[in-house]
C-alpha cells in the first residue's frame, strides 16, 4: 500500500489523512524531516501559508521536501500548499515574508478573491480527472497569475482564473477537495503516486 505523508504543522491536515485512507492509502502525519523517510508522496494541506512556511523553515523541512520532488515523488499542495509550492507570490499579495519552496514554475496571488466574505463554493470541470463537475470549496483562496511553459492547467473558473495546475509530479489546487466528500481528486492523485512508484495501478 502506498504511504503518503500529509504535512501536519498547521491547518486542515486530518481531512487529507481521512480522504487518503478512504481511497486506500496509508497516510502519516509529517512534522519533522525524519517523518518523510520512506514516503511515496506528500500533500501540503490548507492552513495559513505564512504559519506553515515558517514552521517548515524552523524544522528544516524545505530541503528534504525539495529532494522528494526531485526524486519524482508526487507532491500536491492545496490552497496554502499551492502558495508554498510556487516560485513566487505576486506584488498584489502584500506578503512581506512569505516562505516558499519555489518548486513549481508558477506565480500565485494570495487571497486573490478578497477576505473571508468572498470565500465560495463552485462546481469545477477538470477533464484530466473527471468528465463530471467536481464540487470545490475556495476559502481565502489564491489563484495562479502566471504559468511557465511546462505547467499544465487542470482547471479554471468561468472567468478564466487558473485554480489547478500540474507540472510533472507536482500538483497545486487553489481549492479544498478535502473538505467535500468527493474522492475523485484523491483517487487521481493516488494514480500519480502508483505510476511514479512503478506499481501497477489498481482498478477502481
Amino acid at each position: 500500500m502506498p504511504m503518503i505523508g500529509v504535512l501536519a504543522l498547521q491547518g486542515a491536515f486530518i481531512e487529507h489523512v481521512n480522504r487518503l485512507r478512504e481511497v486506500g492509502a496509508d497516510a502519516v502525519e509529517v512534522r519533522l524531516p525524519a517523518d518523510l523517510d520512506g514516503l511515496d508522496g506528500l500533500i501540503i494541506p490548507g492552513g495559513e501559508s505564512t504559519t506553515i512556511g515558517r514552521l517548515m523553515d524552523w524544522y528544516e523541512l524545505n530541503e528534504p521536501v525539495k529532494q522528494m520532488a526531485a526524486d519524482g515523488k508526487p507532491v500536491w499542495g492545496t490552497c496554502a500548499g499551492m502558495i508554498l509550492l510556487a516560485r513566487e507570490v505576486d506584488q498584489d499579495s502584500r506578503a512581506q515574508h512569505q516562505p516558499l519552496l519555489g518548486l513549481m514554475d508558477i506565480t500565485v496571488r494570495r487571497n486573490a478573491f478578497g477576505s473571508q466574505l468572498d470565500s465560495f463554493e463552485a462546481d469545477l470541470v477538470m477533464p484530466p480527472i473527471s468528465d463530471d463537475p467536481i464540487p470545490t470549496v475556495f476559502i481565502r483562496a489564491p489563484v495562479v497569475s502566471r504559468i511557465g511553459p511546462d505547467v499544465e492547467v487542470l482547471a479554471t473558473l468561468s472567468d478564466g482564473k487558473i485554480v489547478a495546475v500540474r507540472q510533472g509530479n507536482l500538483v497545486a489546487t487553489a481549492f479544498h477537495p478535502e473538505l467535500t466528500g468527493d474522492q475523485r481528486l484523491h483517487r487521481w492523485y493516488m494514480h500519480l503516486v502508483r505510476a511514479s512508484a512503478k506499481q501497477p495501478a489498481e482498478a477502481d
Binding site: 501536519a8 504543522l9 498547521q10 491547518g11 486542515a12 491536515f13 486530518i14 481531512e15 490548507g46 492552513g47 495559513e48 490552497c79 496554502a80 473571508q116 470565500s119 470549496v137 476559502i139 481565502r140 479544498h176 473538505l179
Partner: peptide, 8 residues
C-alpha cells in the same frame, strides 16, 4: 471551512 484551516 475557514475554522478548519486555522486548526493546529
Amino acid at each position: 471551512g475557514l475554522a478548519q484551516m486555522l486548526k493546529g
